[in-house]
């Protein structure tokens, strides 16, 4: 690995730690929210926002920007931490998460938050919106790319498979889906609740190019985006193996931390574990 790349990865790791702290602090302050699936996708989100995607936080409507759709809308704390860090709004907004009159609703509302392309929260819908954006880019011969982050539990939704079929059929090679494969949904192990495997083969059979990576290894994440950029004729999915609650020992791999806020002591322990 080159020195430059090493430095970049070091920088991303530090950002990810900072974002994880932001996520936990805002959820603890709000008294509710979804830490598990925010923490599992933090490294992916960090790589997207601070290495891969083109955007201008001073001009959220910049036509050439890459589009990001958070299909798993309950990971709102992650999205808000990313957008604040990217400069779309002040970091002090994070303290108002889920409060009355806050722009940061429990799930992302596009009419309130600069940088949020579309409101999400009802699972299964974001990938179709992303496909619509990608189709529009194709129709207008625009170069922007579309990224959509999906939960693995979310793949239970039938509409996701409609969108997968549609995107493969229309050869939307400007579309990159990322599955946050943390293996847990609210009721437990995804393979026990509603088995997804063989998952990569499912996407392949719907005419997608696929790659499976460790979703916490920045080198692998960046390599996956490189592959996407060389990709053609088919949409691209990154199946990112992750750990729900990643970075906080007592939350890791615990379904119970899907939608629960840490109390004051728990927050302190978590923040200590997440020091640079």
């Amino acid at each position: 690995m080159t020195e430059r790349k090493n430095k970049k990865i070091e920088k991303l790791k530090n950002i990810a730690l900072e974002l994880r702290r932001d996520i936990l602090k805002m959820i603890a302050k709000a008294g509710s929210g979804h830490p598990g699936g925010s923490l599992s996708a933090t490294d992916i989100g960090t790589a997207l926002f601070f290495s891969e995607m083109k955007y201008d936080s001073n001009d959220p409507d910049w036509k050439e920007r890459d589009r990001f759709i958070l299909s798993k809308g309950h990971a709102a704390p992650l999205l808000y931490a990313l957008l604040a860090k990217a400069g779309y709004f002040s970091g002090s907004e994070l303290n108002k998460l889920r409060g009355y009159k806050s722009i940061l609703q429990g799930h992302p509302a596009s009419y309130l938050v600069p940088g949020v392309e579309v409101s999400t929260g009802s699972l299964g819908q974001g990938l179709s919106v992303a496909a619509g954006l990608a189709l529009s880019a194709k129709q207008d011969k625009k170069n922007f790319r579309v990224f959509s982050l999906l939960g693995d539990g979310e793949l239970n939704e039938g509409q996701i498979w409609e969108a997968i079929m549609f995107s493969g059929h229309n050869k939307l090679d400007n579309l990159c889906a990322i599955v946050d494969r943390n293996h847990l949904q609210i009721d437990g192990d995804t393979e026990k609740v509603m088995a997804l495997e063989p998952l990569e083969e499912k996407w392949q059979s719907f005419n997608w190019n696929t790659i499976s990576i460790n979703g916490h290894d920045f080198e692998e994440i960046l390599m996956a985006f490189e592959k996407f950029n060389q990709n053609s004729d088919k949409p691209f999915v990154i199946i990112a193996k992750t750990v729900k609650g990643k970075g906080v020992s007592y939350m890791e791999n615990k379904a119970g931390w899907h939608g629960k806020a840490p109390n004051r002591e728990q927050l302190e322990i978590a923040l200590k574990e997440l020091e640079n």
């Binding site: 589009r67 392309e117 579309v118 299964g124 819908q125 974001g126 179709s128 919106v129 992303a130 496909a131 619509g132 954006l133 990608a134 189709l135 529009s136 880019a137 207008d140 039938g158 509409q159 409609e162 969108a163 079929m165 549609f166």
Partner: peptide, 16 residues
């Protein structure tokens, strides 16, 4: 025959 996807693909198009 996929009405749910149709509505949200339309949503994506409308964003553009």
């Amino acid at each position: 025959i996929a009405e749910q996807n149709m509505v949200n693909v339309a949503a994506g198009l409308s964003l553009e």
